[in-house]
Amino acid sequence: MKLALKVTEIEQLSPLVKRFRFEDPKGGSLPVFSGGAHITVEMPEGEIIRRNSYSLISDPYDGTAYEIAIRREDQGRGGSLYMHTKVSEGDEITVSAPSNLFQLDLRARKHVLIAGGIGITPFLSQLKQLDMELKPYELHYAARSRAEAAGIKLLPEAAHVHVHISEEGARMDLGAILDGQPLGTHVYTCGPDGLITAVADQAARLGWPKTSVHSEAFTAPPPGEPFEVVIASTGQTVSVKADQSLLEALEAAKVEVDYSCRGGACGRCHTKVTACDGRILHNDHWLSEGERAAQKDIMPCMSRFKGARLELDL
């Protein structure tokens, strides 16, 4: 399901982060959503359409608008740059219906939310949901500096919202955060891989069950060298440009692939490889180490290829 919306507000939250507000052009109501949900935004440029997924930061039960916050990635393949430089208030924009790969487990006795940098975004909708559902939680938001902590503007001032600015010497102490939480607590992390791993390791050291530890790490697909793939069923060759993801190239060539997060997290675009002469550059969070090494599977939303021939079971 696609929604054709209008950009009604753009706000510079920090030097690198902008907030975008999208509304129905006719003032209609948009589908409401659950905390932690994302939408996929279409960014047409010339012949290609880039699609990036961004967490919704607005009130999940409010259908009047969707809001997202995007950090400008100058080294990226162009999605965030497009949003920062080409999109203005009043423009039309096409987005997907909300989808959630990072939902709260509403059974939890308590929720601990840990954000690093731009990883604050999914928590902004989650904490609205937690407030509305009257669930106990604490949020920890770590950033290098106040200038970089774009989320501060969007956070409520509350005793259970903690901001850790490392430049100010207030580093986040994961041991102190996780130790002694009541049985039935769930922890959620979004941010750099290092933070996600650190929280998972700390939780494991404290004997937390794996199913109580959640994370979302999806990022935009990285650019790279151009490459080609062959579609096994048709023999068709599909070229992937440097600033295009394999998934986007397949879509442009009308090869049907299912997808959701477009960030290597959900597993939906998982594709079998029927022949591989070269090296798959795995950039996803879905495949296991073993699967990566075997080179028999690829996540086209994130991963690329270097070598002579890659044939996909499509």
Partner: peptide
């Protein structure tokens, strides 16, 4: 005992 238990309790 469960009610008073902390995360990590076996």
């Amino acid at each position: 005992l469960l009610n008073e238990a902390r995360m990590g309790t076996q």
